[in-house]
Design a protein around this nucleic acid. Structure first.
Lengths: 341, 341
DNA sequence: CTGAAAGCGCTTACAG
DNA sequence: CTGAAAGCGCTTACAG
């Protein structure tokens, strides 16, 4: 059951396989007559070029590798969508692999991608450490980091991300303006860097307004459960006489917290305001609809892919930090009377 | 910037590249001495085998292509997760592409996968027509259909899916037992086959109980918007004096409908019961939590991949239809007084 | 135990 | 305008 190759076409057309190759690639030096003949035989035979052979010969596979921590995460689903769209549009095939938030698996996936000689790699939520980065540098595959979770930048590599700190600032400004003076941040342990920055932007800003650090609580769960559940459980540990507003690492955590509150009769936003992050599809459909710090998710994926394409094309590039925006919906409202200082 | 090849290793080790190849693959006919020496040089040089060259030579790429309609769909996110896990575990790399519910793009993606000589393909929500199937048959790539949306089976191909009709039956039984006698089905135009079967199982069962067809409404939206919005909009067209229960194509549509109901003050489940399909993560966290027909989403993906692996291994296989289960939560309750016949 | 040779399916510089 | 040759980086049957 051999597949048909240019050799087969050549035989039928009584020409050399070189000529077939040229005709197929639209080389104008082949006479129109033989070119059309070859094209016709090719369709008759149901010929499909072998991209593997082309890749080997051209030392370029037109293939991109994408590694994300979790494919089923609603945020990453949108990001992958953006990456895939641009990838497809530029005739690059996309390899997808999940790393489950494990740094060792991130590198393992990258090694596999390299074996397959992908032209470039996009890694989401990178937690690669120095040793792993050294190895990556040695591999010399153009790489762009998407929302890196490393504690420092990776010199020599490209990155696109969101301004997490600015997002935290936005949440703080919003909640402060509504009169909230006792707040909590529900964070995510799985994503150390963005978690830290969101919480920091939030706390710094409130402290800047004069709020004592003691009025800003921070809660993290070591659990590896899904975010909705983490949000629910974190909320259940809260002392609601001490907080009037919650800022959550992301919408899933916020939605989980919201569900807990409703289940125990805490009115949102009358008694408690909740602000999420990401603006996933569900944020518009919760009751109340979620106030959130929106990330341009699809654009983030598109931007990362465009950056990578530019790198591959040898063009000069600059890293991109997109800016989040505040989307006010119904889960946030003025602090309940008597709580403001 | 050439990468290091077995040729480079051979030169350093003063042996032929054949010997290097053998040593690297653990061929026991190579003496231990030279084998260790070669292995060491390989690591020193940072050698990574070129899978492209191996693929060409072995006429097998250890690569699988997966085409789904929408990566960001919460149901498919879970399914992809299952496919990816099994794929990774069996050292197959996974190509991912989105078809946006367009049959022409499904085939286009398949053609690209074939060019790249994937060993097998999994296509989700297939809407391939006869002409396209003819082409696919000609390509002769082992293919398994995951939740096919074609109106008839594809003879000669493999399939795994859920028993949609049985799911509709489950919903009907549940709602009937609760005393509902005026119901509506909120369907999905984007997935014709499963939509039809879910609605049919639902309606057949109720008719079997003696409910007149006029008491079973069906609503579809031609919109290509996201499911949450479709559910919201479909719900807004309902005459709630004529329905006490809703069965929705999936959880997203159900969640959208639920949001609409809450926004206009219709109490769920007191005035209206809602049953979804899929049991996505969010179903447990809506208020009220959603009663739904659960699909084993990750298992569906895993099963499809296992089936494909069996086909590739030349083992005998049988198509699999998984059975959905009813998960009762808080969005369904006895029909309000006075509505039962 | 090891090497020389052929070949996987292409592309392209070099001749003619 | 077309062909013969080399080569991309491997694997493996055939000799020795």
């Amino acid at each position: 059951m051999r597949r048909v190759s240019i050799e087969d076409i050549a035989r039928q057309a009584q020409v050399s396989h070189s000529t077939v190759s040229r005709a197929l690639r639209g080389n104008k030096r082949i006479s129109l007559a033989v070119r059309t003949q070859i094209l016709q035989i090719a369709t008759e035979l149901g010929y499909t070029p072998n991209a593997i052979a082309q890749s080997l010969q051209q030392r370029q596979t037109n293939t991109i590798g994408l590694v994300v921590a979790d494919v089923a995460d609603p945020f990453w689903g949108e990001v992958v969508k953006g990456v895939e769209a641009v990838s497809m549009h530029n005739q690059k095939a996309l390899f997808l692999s999940a790393s489950q938030y494990e740094p060792s698996r991130q590198l393992a996936v990258i090694e596999v991608f390299h074996q397959r000689r992908v032209d470039g790699i996009i890694v989401g939520d990178s937690q690669l450490g120095d040793a792993q980065i050294t190895r990556l540098a040695r591999i010399k595959v153009p790489t762009v980091f998407l929302n890196s979770q490393a504690d420092h930048a990776y010199p020599g590599f490209h990155a696109v991300g969101i301004d997490n700190y600015a997002g935290g600032v936005l949440a703080a400004q919003h909640l402060w303006a509504l009169g909230h003076r006792q707040v909590a941040y529900l964070g995510s342990t799985k994503r150390p860097a963005s978690n830290h920055l969101r919480g920091l932007g939030f706390a710094d800003t409130l402290r800047g307004y004069g709020l004592p650090t003691s009025a800003i609580m921070t809660h993290h769960s070591p659990s590896l459960a899904e975010d909705l559940r983490i949000g629910y459980e974190l909320a259940s540990t809260l002392d609601f006489t001490q907080v009037t507003a919650l800022f959550c690492y992301n919408d899933s955590i916020a939605l989980g917290a919201l569900t807990y509150c409703r289940s125990v009769g805490i009115a949102v936003p009358q008694q408690l305001s909740i602000v999420g992050f990401d603006d996933v599809a569900m944020a518009q459909f919760s009751m109340p609809a979620l106030t959130t710090i929106a990330q341009p998710k699809v654009a983030l994926g598109e931007t990362a892919m465009h950056l990578l394409l530019a790198v591959l094309a040898g063009q000069p590039t600059i890293d991109t930090i997109l800016t989040p925006t505040l989307v006010v919906r119904q889960s946030s409202a003025p602090a309940p009377k008597g709580t403001a200082q």
